[in-house]
Design a binder for these strands. Structure first.
Length: 398
RNA sequence: GGGGGUGUACCGAAGCGGCCAAACGGGGCAGACUGUAAAUCUGCUGACUAUGUCUCCCGAGGUUCGAAUCCUCGCGCCCCCA
């Protein structure tokens, strides 16, 4: 993708975007010289926002910084159906207080990326308008689309092919989301590539409703820390925006090198030139490049100080193999105590058998002395440092 | 409603009466090597008072000296027909 001929703001807006429908419309809208309404829908389920979500949120923030308005829609009504993207057909209906709470949690986290000041941010619940539709309205809405069109969607297509059931109500999901766009008069809708179909239905419906159709911009799905699967909470391969600096830094440092260019593009504001030079092994050692990446990310969610600190701490711990700054101290009231017992007591293993295995695999040391005998009895005269593997360390006192 | 299939550890998948705490692959953990990267090599991956004991192969019963393996009932999932 090269947009060399585009003016700077547009070029920046297009960075990292997988697909724009359509670029011409976006140009035209930007030329209107009025704040555009940038829509993003969210599920009111319990959120733990991570870097994957941040890709889209950062794009939204970029628009805000150019003076546009972020319109965040809480899908409290849509949640009754469940997004077919998630493929599980039914989802528990959330009660109102749970929705409110989830929305608040979402905002707390999204606020680390978005500008929540009232002149640049608008929060809406789609029950506000979807709840008011009567049957005739719904019929009218369904009249705008065809079954063929719905079946065209990858997800439905696949389920038709392999015989998985599709609930009739699931067809409504894209329509509802499309209707949201009509109501809030979106100029641009953002989403992950998995939302392309839904978002485009919004574009259709606006056109049919005599509105200027929204532009749809979809962002790639971020690959998780393991380098293969999409970043998600359930896979455990994620960096939460609420992660503490040290954690965040360490997690980023653990990504495979191949992922760096992707992360740089989608998760940092660094210029393309800068990124190119960072990723060129002739100019920058890969470890250095990853350090910069990790710092930039930590800075975004915390601050430069925290980033520096995390980097130093990381170096201390893993390059110089020193103890962490905030070494945890655990008190054990039994002495002497069997080594296995000690390990499970401090929570470094969940069962004695697991602790035994670790000892036998020489992963355990006390005051830098390897312990390989599972029967070893430990006498705690003075505080001692217990290590299990590379990451688990603490100080033990009586 | 009728017919067929299937259910094994975190996941996929062998096993189909004893040699099964259950092959193999993936994942995870640990060790070596390193840049807490990748690749590679090695070991581990049910529990426990640990060279033995206990629990375990969807659930409940049963057959058998002996069951993940056979039978019965139940539950879940899948496919085909209506």
């Amino acid at each position: 993708m090269s947009h060399i001929a585009e003016p700077q703001p547009l070029r920046d807006l297009l960075r990292g975007v997988e697909q724009t429908y359509s670029l011409d419309d976006l140009r035209r809208k930007l030329a209107l010289k009025r704040p555009l309404r940038i829509k993003l829908g969210m599920d009111p389920t319990a959120p733990d926002i991570h870097l994957g979500h941040s890709v889209v949120l950062r794009k939204m923030r970029q628009f805000q910084d150019l003076g546009h308005t972020a319109v965040l829609i809480i899908g409290d009504y849509t949640a009754r159906i469940g997004d077919p993207t998630g493929r599980d057909a039914t989802r528990p209906v959330l009660d109102e207080s749970a929705i409110q709470q989830n929305a608040q949690t979402y905002l707390d986290q999204a606020g680390t990326i978005l500008d929540l000041s009232p002149d640049k941010f608008e929060l809406r619940y789609n029950s506000e308008w979807l709840g008011k539709l009567n049957f005739a309205d719904v019929l009218n809405l369904t009249g705008q689309f065809t079954v063929q069109q719905m079946l065209h969607r990858d997800n439905f297509k696949k389920r038709m092919a392999d015989g998985t059931e599709i609930q009739l109500a699931e067809f409504m999901y894209p329509l509802m989301q499309a209707y949201d766009s009509v109501v809030v008069k979106a100029d641009v809708e953002l989403g992950g590539t998995d939302q392309t179909f839904n978002n485009l239905r919004g574009r259709d419906l606006m056109g049919k409703s005599n509105l200027d159709p929204q532009v749809v911009m979809v962002m790639p799905i971020l690959v998780g820390l393991d380098g293969t699967q999409k970043m998600s909470k359930s896979k455990g391969n994620y960096v939460a925006v609420r992660d503490q600096p040290n954690d965040m830094y360490g997690k980023v440092m653990s990504i495979p090198d191949e992922l760096m260019s992707n992360y740089y593009e989608l998760l940092t504001p660094l210029s393309t030139d800068r990124i190119t030079s960072l990723l060129d092994p002739e100019q920058t050692h890969p470890r250095e490049a990853k350090d910069v990446l990790a710092r930039v990310i930590v800075e975004e969610f915390h601050d430069p100080n925290a980033a520096n600190h995390a980097a130093e701490e990381f170096k201390r711990r893993f390059s110089e193999n020193k103890l962490p700054e905030d070494l945890e101290t655990k008190t054990i009231d039994e002495s002497p105590i069997g080594i296995l017992n000690l390990i499970t007591r401090v929570g470094f293993a969940s069962t004695n058998s697991e602790a035994r295995r670790l000892v036998q695999q020489s992963a355990v040391s006390l005051d830098d002395e390897k312990i390989t005998d599972p029967k070893a009895q430990i006498t705690l005269d003075s505080p001692a440092i217990l290590r299990v593997g590379k990451r688990r360390v603490c100080r033990i006192t009586k």
